[in-house]
């Protein structure tokens, strides 16, 4: 953790139709053993995760409003200052895939232009109920030039990788813009102290 004071804090948000498994992906990413952990409680801080990448620690602040999909609350304030967006659909549910376009539109309207995206097809554990082929998912992602991956929140397959890919996309994009002055306010650096405070959730 020598590098913590220099590490970045990225704000990621997860969006998608209800029951696409957004909360499961986050829970799985936060703690691989969440299911057997009886003491699991909803802590205010548990959506902070640190990811180690090439000797660098990157703090991820993940926003998820699973359960509120029927409310008209996913608005600009939610997208404001977001660094990355994960758009989740359920590979067994045609409707959830239909909404992917809608989410891309919303992002282009509401999120900052610098935001990076990833399209995630969830529930590969239900291969026999699959309705959306990998190819269709890939095409949708390609047409929006964003990365794509299929995961299973249930088995944990590819979940960590999806977040890593999103962070990679962000790193790549910020490298390209390195010579230009940053439009956004200086990215928040995490001090040792605040990192410890934020990290006390029982997830990582």
């Amino acid at each position: 953790m020598s590098n913590v004071s220099d590490s970045l804090l990225l704000k990621l948000i997860i969006i998608g139709r209800s029951m696409a498994g957004k909360s499961c992906i986050l829970l799985r990413f936060c703690d691989n053993k969440f299911e057997s952990n009886l003491g699991f409680t909803i802590g205010v801080d548990f959506r902070f995760v640190s990811l180690n990448k090439n000797d660098e620690t990157i703090g991820l602040q993940i926003w998820d409003t699973a359960g509120q999909e029927r409310f008209r609350t996913i608005t600009s304030s939610y997208y404001r200052d977001a660094d990355g967006v994960m758009i989740v659909y359920d590979i067994t549910d045609e409707n959830s895939f239909d909404q992917v376009d809608h989410w891309f539109d919303e992002i282009s309207k509401q999120a900052p232009p610098s935001v990076v995206k990833i399209l995630v097809g969830n529930k590969t554990d239900l291969e026999n109920k699959r309705k959306i082929s990998t190819e269709r998912g890939l095409n949708a992602a390609n047409s929006r030039s964003c990365p794509f991956i299929e995961v299973s929140a249930k088995s944990g397959e590819n979940v960590k990788k999806a977040f890593e890919m999103l962070v990679d996309a962000w790193t790549e994009k910020s490298k390209q813009h390195i010579t230009k002055p940053r439009k956004k306010k200086a990215r928040q650096k995490i001090t040792n102290e605040s990192f410890e405070k934020k990290d006390k959730g029982n997830c990582c």
Partner: peptide
Amino acid sequence: YLGVFLTDLTFIEEGNR
């Protein structure tokens, strides 16, 4: 605001068997 309760319930339901 009902939404926060609903999010909490979602995480409890999905996070525990």
